[in-house]
Simulated scan of single mutants.
Amino acid sequence: MSAPAQDWNALSDDDFRKVVRTFFTTHYPEHLRYSPSRRRLSDMRGWYDTLSQHGWVAPSWPTRYGGMGLEPGKLVVFIEEQEAYGVARVPDHGIIMVGPLLIQQGTDEQRLRYLPKILTGEEIWCQGYSEPNAGSDLASLRTEAVLDGDHFVVNGQKTWSTLAQDGTHMFMLVRTDKMARKQEGISFLLVDMTTPGITVRPMRTLSGHEEFCEVFFDDVRVPKENIVGEINKGWGVAKALLSFERLFLGSPKLAQSALSRLSTLAVLSGRVRDPVFRDKFTALQLDVDDLNGLYRRFTAQVSDGEKLGPDVSILKIWGTETFSRIGDLIVEVSAGAGMIDGPSDFEGGSFDTLSTFYNARPSTIYGGTNEVQRNIVAGNVLNLPST
């Protein structure tokens, strides 16, 4: 019998913070700190293995499924220390999206099959939602899955799939009934990326990185037991997963990390003594504090087993727009260096001024554009009439 899991929630926040801080300073590779761009699996494999070996790879999962079982307050402490030390994201779609979904809505067989290999990093997940003509209007997707005996045959294309070139598996939305209404006839499917007929094509972004991919499906055969939930009922499953995604995208960690970088730049550039800058910095710091409080509220809902409602869109809006405002101020503080791609020299040291700005540009778009999020809030939270 394995030893009982550590009850991290029994520690005080201060004691837990010390444990987390010591863990990161002891184990996280120095050369990976404060990465200006999303790291590939090849960069993060060692760190993923370290987290897995110590049982720290899934902080929010219940302990019975191999997670740390952190309550919302402890999870926020974990994230704060992670960002303070400049810890980059591991390939985490399986951890933050597929895992929680299967824990809530998967079958026992699916949980047994997939969760352990997410924890060990043997299987890395990517997302198959958006299509060339179905981005924010996701319900217009046309990738089709036709049932043929014990398999679905999948044909179509997905786009903006983050780091799909590193993925061993994809969770995707497919149309299983072309005659149904737009938000009906959609199913949620788990796909092995080594299946014949799948082609992955990376796309180079404005920042010069190949973070996103197009993925093509040509008569790809997927076992029918890989469906999550009922056939033609995938939209409800997708909405639950989008809630997880919007919770994650609204996490304060991006804004906290960007604010830390802004503080560093202010010292390097000498702007820290400028009262106008200090006013702007303080306003952004208050925005990040408000974001942190809002995030705690939603993580508490998840921890209590409550479903996230449409109001989680507020978190995604506030988190990504705060992140963007900080990126804008970094460019402003950089003055002429704000037009230079890559590190620039300041009197106090070197600083990459554009990386935060670049990373903030798509944040208001992915996970559902903020314009769409505002419509969700207006219609489903405020009950405002549609025009």
Rank of each mutant, 00 (worst) to 15 (best):
I231P: 04
G379Q: 11
D150N: 11
S12W: 08
L249C: 11
D150C: 06
D218L: 01
G156I: 00
S257E: 04
Q373K: 09
S207W: 09
I314K: 14
K239A: 09
Q256V: 09
H93D: 08
G94C: 06
V237A: 01
S303E: 01
S243A: 15
T120G: 04
P202S: 08
S207A: 15
L308Q: 05
K158G: 02
V222C: 01
I376L: 09
K253P: 02
E332T: 14
L286K: 12
M68T: 10
S344I: 03
I326H: 03
K316M: 15
E371I: 12
L294G: 03
P59L: 08
W47Y: 14
L254E: 11
S257N: 02
A266C: 01
R111D: 09
R296F: 12
R45I: 11
F24D: 01
S263K: 09
F188N: 00
G66S: 14
V228N: 00
G367N: 10
A360V: 10
Y34N: 15
V98W: 04
R39A: 13
H209E: 15
S243R: 12
V146P: 04
E81P: 06
L190N: 02
G185M: 06
T176P: 08
E123S: 05
G348T: 12
P91C: 09
T159V: 14
N359Y: 03
N383R: 14
T356H: 03
S263H: 12
G367F: 08
T26Y: 04
L70M: 08
A3K: 05
F152Y: 15
T25K: 12
Y28A: 02
T22P: 02
I326G: 02
T364A: 13
A238Y: 10
I186K: 05
Y48V: 03
Q183D: 03
T176Q: 03
F323G: 02
F171L: 02
I186C: 05
V57M: 02
K233P: 10
S207L: 15
F357R: 13
G86D: 10
V288C: 07
L147Q: 09
V228Y: 01
S42A: 15
F217K: 02
F216V: 03
D108V: 13
G46A: 06
L249M: 13
M1P: 11
W8L: 00
T176I: 08
R39Y: 12
G327K: 00
M172C: 09
E109N: 10
N226Y: 02
D177H: 07
A300M: 11
T22K: 10
F244D: 07
L112G: 10
A378G: 11
A180N: 14
L115M: 14
S35A: 13
V381Q: 01
P362R: 02
L291G: 03
K239F: 07
D274F: 00
M170Q: 01
Y28R: 04
L265I: 10
D92P: 02
V87Y: 04
M170I: 07
V222D: 00
G135E: 11
T369D: 14
V302A: 11
E71W: 04
S140A: 15
L315D: 03
K253V: 13
L286Y: 07
V220G: 05
K158N: 04
L329W: 00
T264I: 05
K178Q: 11
W160S: 06
G86E: 13
D166M: 06
P91H: 08
S350D: 12
A139I: 04
G67H: 11
K280P: 02
A58E: 07
G236P: 01
L163F: 14
V200N: 06
A164N: 07
L262F: 02
G121Q: 03
L242C: 11
R175D: 08
K117A: 13
